[in-house]
Structure formats: C-alpha cells, structure tokens
C-alpha cells in the first residue's frame, strides 16, 4: 500500500536530532516502522548528526570516567536485561517497552487506551479506536497533534488517511474526521495540550481529554 501522508521534514529532522519529546517520538517511530521513504530521510539526517558530533569540540570527561565505565561493564554480567512488556499482536514494535492502560469507553463507538510513558510532560500518547463510520467530534488543538494510522482509515477536509499514513495538525486546523465504513480505525496519537471539542460527543470525550 502506498503511504501518502508523511510527517513534515521538520518533524522527521527533530526525530533524528533527538529534540522530539518521548511521546511524539513514539508516534513518529510507529510511522517509520512502515515507511521506507521516511526511514531513508531520517537515516540521512542521522548522518548529518554523526558528522556534527564528529565536528564538535570535545568536552573533557571527568577523571577516571573510562575506568568507572569499565567497572560497570564488569558488573554487567550479573545484570538481568529488562523484560519487555507483553505486546498485543499488530501493535507497532515501538510500543513494546511501555505499559498500557486499559481500553476505556469515551463515546459511542470510540475507545481509547493510554500509553504509560515514563515522562510525557505536556504530551499524552494513546491508542484511539473508532468503529466503522464513526464521526469524531469537530475539534481544534491547543498544541500539535500527531496521528499515526495503524489500522483502517478515516477522512476529513484534509484528505483520506489509511493505515501507514501520518497526520500532523496544529492549533489552526479544524477537522471533523469520519472513519471509513469498512472497518474500525485504530490510531496512535500524541496530543499536546488540550483538545477543544465542540458538540455532544465532544462533551463525552472530555473525560479522556483530562486523563
């Protein structure tokens, strides 16, 4: 399947540079797992990062830093590797290290499941599942909203979005997504700040927005 909607170059470069917060990084990573073109761009930008790292003037390490690191390597052998949390089949690999909350009902045909990141700051990450044909409430954003479509499709004024596609929205965008009628749609979303919802379903969604 051809992926038509990608993260902006700026978002991909920020991913490569490490300036994206963890929440947004996870959502971008779920797109990269499927999109060879974006992986190529990110790898190129990482190369730029490698060159820039080489060109930085070195900051002297503390005394015995190497000895301390080697001592830690010696202690490594007894260390148990972190046990990955069980993952549901079909979810992107980038979610593996993180625990998830339960699916919860947020409105007719709509469920969400929070991804429990160690530090999410102002950005919340969650899976959003909406039944076939569901109309999501019209909303605008306080901050940016990144959406990676994992399963199914939706469309709105901005275009048609299928599994593998990526949507980047900011406060200026006002959308009313409608889920494709053939199957449920599951998205991974990183949401900054509050959603501003309007209408009846908006009121229903508020509990999850305040999560």
């Amino acid at each position: 399947m051809t992926i038509r909607h990608h993260p902006s170059d700026e978002t991909l470069a920020a991913y490569a540079a490490g300036t994206l917060d963890l929440g947004r990084r996870v959502v971008v990573a779920s797109h990269l797992e499927r999109c060879a073109a974006c992986r190529r761009f990110v790898r190129g930008a990482e190369q730029v990062g490698g060159v820039m790292l080489e060109d930085l003037s070195p900051a002297p390490m503390s005394e015995h830093a190497l000895a301390r690191t080697l001592a830690r390597i010696d202690r490594e052998h007894s260390r148990q590797p972190a046990k990955p949390v069980a993952n549901e089949p079909g979810l992107p690999a980038c979610l593996k290290p993180y625990e998830m909350g339960r699916w919860r009902w947020v409105g007719p045909g709509v469920e969400m499941r929070p991804i429990l990141l160690p530090e999410s700051g102002n950005v919340r990450v969650f899976l959003l599942k909406a039944g076939p044909g569901t109309r999501l409430p019209q909303h605008t954003h306080e901050g940016s909203e990144l959406t990676s479509i994992l399963v199914g499709s939706f469309h709105h004024e901005g275009g048609d979005f299928f599994a593998g596609d990526f949507e980047e929205a900011d406060g200026d965008v006002e959308h009313r997504p409608i889920v494709g009628t053939d199957m449920a749609c599951i998205c991974l979303v990183a949401l900054e700040g509050q959603l501003k919802l309007s209408g009846f379903i908006g009121a229903l969604l508020n509990p999850f927005v305040r999560l």
Binding site: A17, G18, V42, E46, G49, G50, C94, P118, E119
Partner: peptide, 30 residues
C-alpha cells in the same frame, strides 16, 4: 559516528527528562 550519534540521541530523549527506565536504547528503528 552516525551509529553512536543515534545512541546518544536516544539517551538524550529518554534520560534527559529525568525519568529513567531500563529500556534498551536505539531500538526504535528495528
């Protein structure tokens, strides 16, 4: 340099924000 940069970058995002979980770094691009 590129490989090591990605390791440092992932540490930066994981660790910089004070919390630390024992998650393998650099694994977000399998």
């Amino acid at each position: 340099a590129t490989w090591i940069f990605t390791i440092a970058r992932n540490l930066r995002t994981d660790r910089f924000r004070k919390e630390w979980r024992d998650v393998p770094v650099g694994d977000d691009l399998p």
